[in-house]
Design a protein around this nucleic acid. Structure first.
Length: 306
DNA sequence: TTCCAGGTGGCAT
DNA sequence: ATGCCACATGGA
């Protein structure tokens, strides 16, 4: 029958990847620690569905992917063919988190406590363009609403990928598309005052050249930071999130309201300057990873506490 | 009603 | 260089 044939075609288009011997890996913690916005827990419970963007040879590839962890095994079922090494890089599997955790906790009992709460966190290596727009949206905003805004943006302006796991899925809109919108076009996405920032930043990226933007991680960190903060809607906090989550600068220590809170509660530090100095001296090269443990820790505490 | 959320731009000192 | 403050939106 025709229907079966279509289904079969769909099956053929999917690709599966299995990754074994996971270490310091908790899918739930990784996807729910606030670093990414396009993953959601599936109805079947236990598995997660998301749309992931890869930038390959100057082009964007978006794939719907269903992920499930069983013990030390991760299964990935994606709508497009993505080779295993891409997923290994996305989930940062080449990094030795066990050693990093040991070193961070060496002379600090407090961070040890935070690490215990999120011991399976890994920093994803996310697409630089998608992360830029996502974190511009994140400013003075909360995570559920950020996710809603991004989803609306993709539904309205992203490439349709097909119907998977009960929902129509869409890729992340390209800089070309967003640069040519006006504020009214974006009204449906409820971005508020951030809408013009996104349009302006998109134009800046096109002016700079996508390839050059993607090469920012090759610059010395201070220069990279300057270049990112020159983009509209990107201040120090968003720039640090970009460096950490997309440009693989694990030293980068974003300071938001949650980090301010946890640094005050745990270490008694209130001023941003103090926090920065402390993070540099205490956590060093892996400040950003420590930051994620702290971020997750304080949010878990607040969630349970009330 | 007021406060808050992965802050920043613009303006006045 | 630093210190305010307005800025949409929706949930608590």
């Amino acid at each position: 029958m025709k229907k079966e044939f279509d289904l079969k075609m769909m099956e053929n288009k999917k690709s599966t990847v299995q990754i074994e011997n996971l270490e310091s890996f908790n899918l739930k913690q990784i996807l729910e620690c606030g670093q990414c916005f396009r993953w959601n827990k599936q109805e079947d419970c236990g598995s997660y569905g998301g749309v992931v963007t890869f930038f390959v040879d100057g082009k964007f590839i978006s794939t719907f992917v269903q992920a499930k962890q069983e013990g030390e095994k991760l299964s990935l079922l994606s709508s497009k063919e993505i080779i295993k090494s891409k997923w290994e890089n996305y989930f940062d599997l080449k990094t030795d988190y066990k050693t990093i955790k040991k070193n961070l906790g060496k002379n600090d009992l407090k961070i040890k406590e935070a690490i215990k709460a999120g011991e399976g966190i890994r920093i994803l290596n996310q697409d630089k363009w998608e992360t830029l727009v996502s974190f511009i949206i994140s400013q003075n905003n909360n995570i559920p609403r950020i996710k809603g805004c991004i989803e609306a943006l993709c539904q309205k302006f992203g490439e349709p990928l097909g119907h998977f796991a009960g929902t129509n899925r869409y890729g992340f809109p390209s800089p070309q598309i967003l640069a040519n919108l006006n504020v009214e076009d974006l009204g449906i996405c409820k971005l508020g005052y951030r809408a013009p920032y996104i349009i302006e930043a998109s134009k800046q990226i096109l002016d700079m050249g996508l390839e050059e933007y993607y090469r920012i991680d090759e610059l010395p960190e201070e220069e990279a930071f300057q270049k990112l903060t020159s983009l509209k809607g990107v201040g120090p906090k968003v720039a640090h999130c970009l460096l950490l989550f997309a440009f693989q600068k694990r030293k980068s220590f974003p300071i938001d309201v949650w980090i301010k809170k946890v640094m005050k509660d745990v270490y008694g530090l209130e001023e941003k300057k103090e926090i920065e100095t402390f993070a540099k001296e205490k956590f060093g090269e892996n400040g950003g990873i420590a930051q994620q443990y702290l971020f997750y820790y304080i949010r878990e505490l607040e969630r349970k506490g009330e």
